[in-house]
Design a protein around this nucleic acid. Structure first.
Lengths: 149, 149
DNA sequence: AGGAGATAGTTGAATTGTCAACTAATTTCG
DNA sequence: CGAAATTAGTTGACAATTCAACTATCTCCT
């Protein structure tokens, strides 16, 4: 058994992109954009900064994705009146109308991946993945040069 | 608990890249290159096609990574005499001399991620990730338009 | 033998995400 | 109050990866 988190996660990430780009092409959204959409289905009206934190993604990537989703009619933005630096991002009616179909495609992917694997083991995998992500959120593994303090 | 393989794997993949790019900068290699190096530590003399299959990565990405690693002195290539299309890729002596240090950095990352998580759960996570990758290797989830066959 | 199709590798275009630099607005606090 | 630091967002440069098109070589048939 291969014990490299890096390799396994790399394969899953890249194939996930390829699969979802195809599966979601009918919805005119990409694998990277769907992460923003699902976050906003859960809670919209939040700003880009919070969205970036939620997804653990660079704010530049968020800016680009939201701009694209706005063009495609999935989200709209309004300036926050009490903090005019911030955009509030909302899911459009159109996006809501596509929700069920999009989740169906996401579900198919997870079902395919976890097919024939015991449910309790899958559960444990989710738990461990979540805890590893929590470690990342809490604080990065510090990297020092050997001769710096 | 978040049950999206996509989101979790995405965070782990991207942070892994950022961390390793820093941690391995002393070795003049990147996070993506180190995957090729470790595969070649395990078995070198193989061609790019097999390397691509082993890492589940596009052959174009392999070509570019190997070219870069060759420039950096980590690998060298010789034409396979019995199949002159194919390159045989070998780890250099220099690469071997860096092996221990590189694995140390990789180990620090895994240790950080799995810190304070029960060993048997980590084991189960590896098992499930491996089986999911096997599903990918066996065959892609087919995608059809609803009105095709 | 020799042509059709398969295989190994390379190259260039497009996409995604990071970082750094920047603008604009807000908060802090001397 | 008002300058300095912080925060939200944007933009442009760069790296990694995929796909498609291409070359070269090899294998399989008849």
């Amino acid at each position: 058994m291969n014990k490299s988190v890096g390799r396994l996660v790399s394969v899953l990430y890249r194939k996930n992109q390829v699969y979802l780009d195809i599966a979601l092409s009918a919805y005119n959204i990409t694998a990277s954009e769907v992460a923003f959409i699902t976050a906003l289905y859960r809670k919209d009206g939040i700003n880009q900064e919070l969205l970036s934190q939620t997804l653990n993604i660079d704010k530049a990537a968020t800016a680009k994705a939201i701009k694209s989703l706005e063009t495609k009619g999935y989200v709209y933005r309004t300036k926050n009146a009490s903090d005019r630096r911030a955009n509030m991002i909302f899911i459009s009616e159109y996006a809501r109308s596509q929700k069920r179909g999009i989740y169906k495609e996401l579900g198919k992917w997870t079902d395919f991946l976890t097919r024939d694997i015991e449910a309790d083991k899958v559960e444990t995998m989710f738990e461990v993945l979540n805890r590893m992500v929590e470690h990342l959120e809490k604080g990065f593994l510090p990297v020092w040069d050997d001769d710096e303090i």
